[in-house]
Design a protein around this nucleic acid. Structure first.
Lengths: 246, 246
DNA sequence: CGAGCGATTGATCATAATCAAGCGATGTGG
DNA sequence: CCACATCGCTTGATTATGATCAATCGCTCG
């Protein structure tokens, strides 16, 4: 099967067979397997490669001096950390795995060569980077304005949509390999309150959640509860007109 | 005087005289003047140019359906909205002015030509884009983990540091052209609570604030209160070693 | 002068945090 | 194989932070 990154980028543009085999090549070189709950790179370290998640979930996070922790974003298969990180002298946050993970390390040289030889891929990666920035903005909105129920509902909608676009949903269900503590760290809520809010969502029939699997019986309804507007994911095939012309 | 963008980018790399005159040229073509409280571009519209703020303050913001509003980031002189916005079919948020503002519109063609002819500028702009992303992440942390006092203290430290690096502070003071409502929209707090938290900060001698001017008598102290670690601004002259070699 | 805006204050309410305890499943070492 | 520890989840009681509602005040501007 094609790597998740290919599936994701095809939501933006049609890729040629050559584009696809280049992406497959990049996703199969320098692959690392990491266990759950391990850091990929830590705050203060010098970034040396771009990491591409092939399987499993990871996250960006940051600790405050007094131990409070915020998860800043989730990385799922097909996600790539900042294209140009090399430019920075050191990381201002950490990246850690949430599940067992396979990642491909991409060097600056590989990326540059690919950008020159496959401009359509480069263009698609910029689209992906802009979408990642939009997701980060949406998290700002969620943490600033939404209450607990809305935040969880919104997060579940986002996760479901992102997984669906890389083909990892099955019907109305998707994996959700997060503990309630991790959900709390991502939404800025205590795990106790997460627990109670999840019960509310379950009681209202908006979600089912057990054994690391999330079922959303009525996505439209959950979207309404979370005031979720998917436009920020820019998945409306906007670039499908940019044809791969062969 | 050099445009703010030039001053900012020189925190990353040394620019040659040619680089600087190119930046000055770009900042003086297609300049628009806008009054306070007007939209530069609205959600759903198609982005056509990159906006560079020359003078005044603007912000990104987003409204929820029910009227709640979150300010997502501030634009000050020298700030540039996403380099590659052209790629997106429509905006997922709005940009509006906070004060009277002068902005330069930069076309995709101008940017591309500049990137080819002045690679050092392009590199510096990518650094700037990475810093903007880091600021956005830090806002996520602030809204998720910090209490009201910490959020305001942190925001003031960030604003002060950003203004200082473009030469817009005077000693321990800087402009702060924001109403308490706007501070609330940025920090996810009600304006009533902003008012009370400001009084706390004033009472503790951490800030003075009136007539749109902020004084920070002891920046170190305010940083401690806001758990502010400036590393995310990547201002430690990291690229000064990248010489302009003439 | 009156309108409107921004700042301020007081009173009350709501959301979510914190503290504490217990439960069930899993895994491990004696 | 059992005892025990750990982890994730759950529940109850209490507390705290910040929201909301309402009113007032000073200032600027038309």
């Amino acid at each position: 099967m094609e790597p998740a990154l290919t599936r994701k980028l095809e939501h933006f543009t049609r890729l040629s067979p050559e584009d696809k085999s280049e992406l497959t090549r990049i996703a199969s070189e320098r692959v690392r397997s990491l266990p759950a709950h391990q850091d990929v790179i830590r705050e203060e370290e010098k970034p040396r490669v771009v990491n591409l998640v092939l399987e499993g979930w990871a996250c960006r996070y940051k600790h405050l001096e007094d131990g409070r922790r915020q998860i800043i974003s989730f990385f799922m298969p097909g996600d790539l950390c900042d294209l140009n990180v090399f430019i920075l002298k050191r990381m201002d946050h950490s990246i850690g795995t949430l599940t067992d993970v396979k990642i491909a390390e991409i060097s600056q040289e590989t990326l540059e060569a690919m950008g020159l030889a496959y401009p359509r891929i480069l263009q698609a990666l910029w689209w992906d980077a802009l979408v990642s920035a939009a997701i980060q903005r949406e998290w700002t909105v969620a943490l600033g304005q939404r209450n607990a129920t809305e935040r969880l509902a919104h997060l579940f909608c986002e996760i479901f949509c992102r997984l669906r676009c890389i083909g990892l949903t099955e019907g109305s269900s998707c994996p959700l390999p997060l503990t309630q503590i991790e959900l709390g760290d991502a939404t800025g809520l205590s795990f106790v309150h997460i627990n109670r809010t999840l019960q509310d969502l379950r009681r209202d029939g908006l979600i089912k959640l057990n054994r690391r699997r999330l079922v959303i019986p009525d996505l439209e309804a959950l979207m309404r509860v979370g005031l979720f507007n998917p436009n920020y994911l820019h998945l409306d095939h906007e670039g499908r007109n940019i044809d791969a012309n062969r």
